[in-house]
Design a protein around this nucleic acid. Structure first.
Length: 289
DNA sequence: ATGGTGGTCCTACCA
């Protein structure tokens, strides 16, 4: 078990003098926040991130376990939920305000939430929490409406980033983007070329959306592109660890000014083996803002 | 070789 950081209310690390203060951010596709409240608590107690972005909360706003999470020190919570599917939530130890709950593709799905920190080390930073559609099994938009939706969603992100300048400065975007863009973001590039999440058409659109920001791929600033890097392992493997057929579906992007202050990146692979796990693991990033 | 597992919520749908 990791040690709890010393400190009283908030456990703030205070730097002396004008030095920057570390902002610790986590993102995790939780696959039902109610079912997995025990391991959300486990993560928060072990790592004490300043903020945690959750995807696939799978509950209406009225059913979100606000009280339990506030009790753990995360008093500031913004949610965008819906019944049974999708849903995102951002928890923070610092005061923040909701900026937008963007509805993509005119579908009314709860797949985006942006918040702005009003206090703490990331004061003034806007944080986007995104859950991109998975896209179904068949990688042909003509016969698979879910794949068509995924492609349209990523195109809409690209147009929004390009028009709005949301990534110009003081911005972070995290979440389950459901695309593994690089060759070593999947266990076998060759065998994944026709598998939704790594097809050339998705990867091309993903790259265009990232470039439109432009957003920096913070994870790959710390892990070279020729090294395997995964954040998701299927439930359908007999032994996920032995097979290790993972994919990097979860991402941390930031504007260039914030990326320049990125200090560390960790993928908590062990969480895939926790009690009743999500098929995704938490990704943590530290910034000296 | 075309399954395999897991979540929501009642029968499929989604990942």
């Amino acid at each position: 078990m990791a040690c709890r950081r010393a400190g009283g209310m908030g456990g703030v690390q205070v730097a002396t003098g004008p030095a920057a203060v570390t902002f610790k951010l986590a993102t995790w596709n939780i696959n039902s926040v109610r079912l997995r409240l025990p391991i959300v608590a486990q993560l928060l107690e072990a790592e004490r991130p300043d903020a945690l972005c959750l995807q696939e909360t799978k509950c209406r706003d009225a059913e979100f376990p606000l009280a339990a999470l506030r009790k753990l020190g995360y008093e500031h919570i913004e949610i965008n939920g819906q019944k049974g599917y999708h849903g995102v939530a951002t928890l923070s130890r610092w005061k923040m305000k909701a900026v937008e709950r963007r509805g993509f593709c005119d579908k009314g799905d709860a797949r985006h939430l942006s918040t702005k920190f009003l206090d703490g080390p990331a004061k003034g930073v806007t944080l986007h929490n995104v859950y991109v559609p998975a896209g179904g099994d068949e990688p042909d938009p003509v016969i698979n409406e879910k794949f068509a939706h995924k492609l349209a969603f990523v195109d809409e992100m690209r147009d929004w980033f390009g028009a709005d300048g949301v990534a110009k400065k003081k911005a972070i975007l995290v979440g389950d983007l459901n695309i593994a863009p690089l060759e070593h973001d999947v266990w076998s590039h060759r065998q994944m070329l026709k598998v939704v999440s790594h097809t050339p058409v998705e990867v091309e659109k993903f790259a265009a959306a990232q470039a439109a920001g432009p957003w920096v791929d913070v994870m790959r600033r710390f892990v070279p592109e020729n090294e395997k890097l995964y954040t998701w392992w299927s439930y359908r493997a007999a032994d996920w660890r032995a097979a290790d057929r993972g994919r990097r579906l979860d991402h941390v992007w930031s504007s260039g000014d914030v990326a320049a202050e990125a200090r560390s990146l960790r993928v908590l692979k062990d969480a895939r083996g926790w009690e009743r796990p999500s098929d995704h693991v938490p990704v943590l990033a530290d910034f000296d803002l």
